[in-house]
Amino acid sequence: MSLLQWARIKSPWICHFNTGGCNACDIELVAALTPRFDVERFGILLKGSPRHADILVVTGPVTLQTEARLRRVYDQMAEPRFVMVVGVCGCSGSVYHGCYSVKGGIDRVIPVDVYVGGCPPRPSEIIDGVVQILNKIARGDQAADSTAA
């Protein structure tokens, strides 16, 4: 394992963007960051700026209004960048599928590495999603965006 890889596994910082969800996944994400579940033990910190983040956590279906913003937030991230979708709305659009101002799942706009299903997923499931990304980094796998390009 290279030094860079080791450093990435020890401090995967995340940036959170709600693209139009109902808030449930967002509160479960915050619950995952707070004492009972405490993802900070994996070195995970919530960062305000996408430029500081390694993992973009996206919740909710993409609405027409947030589509361009999501793209811009993603483009601002430094490589290697990973995307984790939390909640079934971000996976497929779910209950909002077919609404006139909803585009659908996150992967219609940006490449996604890990999907966490559930409405909303429990914090433990969110942690499982993060650990999958960490395993991905440890194995030296490419992020979804480099394979897509």
């Binding site: 139009g20 109902c22 077919g98």
Partner: peptide, 29 residues
């Protein structure tokens, strides 16, 4: 308006029982 999904319109295409599921998902809190 970033979060606008069109929930009110979506209710018109669902039955009263199906709408229960949608209504809960207007807001997670």
């Amino acid at each position: 308006s970033f979060n606008h999904r069109g929930v009110e319109k979506a209710t018109e295409a669902r039955t009263y029982i199906q709408n229960l599921y949608l209504m809960e998902r207007v807001c997670g809190i």
